[in-house]
Amino acid sequence: MIFSIVVQASPVQNQGAETALRFARAVLAAGHSIHRIFFYRDGVQNGSALSCTPQDELNIPQQWQALAKQHQLDLVVCIAAAVRRGVINEQEATRYKREQWNLNDAFELSGLGQLVEACIQSDRVVTFGGRS
């Protein structure tokens, strides 16, 4: 079965992002495929390359990067949600005249159309971290 996953929770303040990560691993372990993981609302913080976690705690953004590398996952961060929250890549830094950027290379900035496309292509779409 083809899954897509929507992450709306930031990696630290809520459990949603970590649950989404564990769900993604479970989906792959069960032999299914993941068409896309779409980060929306505060979920865009998962794309930051700058989060620093104590060594004995899970660094969720790093875990997404590792999982994506291992399984060639498509990690898409909603561009409208991200630029509002200061999660930008070099291209957007240039566009908005900012001197820094922080999106990790494993993630791509794109529009909500990628969420709708994921719905069209996937048998199941599972959202995490809504209702806040």
């Binding site: 909500l112 159309g113 809504g130």
Partner: peptide, 25 residues
């Protein structure tokens, strides 16, 4: 399921609905 303005949920849900429509879903 959230009231407007206290969070971005209302606006974010509308944006998703409008995008679905643009993609003829």
């Amino acid at each position: 399921r959230s009231a407007p303005y206290g969070s971005s949920a209302a606006r974010d849900a509308l944006d998703v609905a409008l995008t679905c429509s643009v993609f003829e879903q």
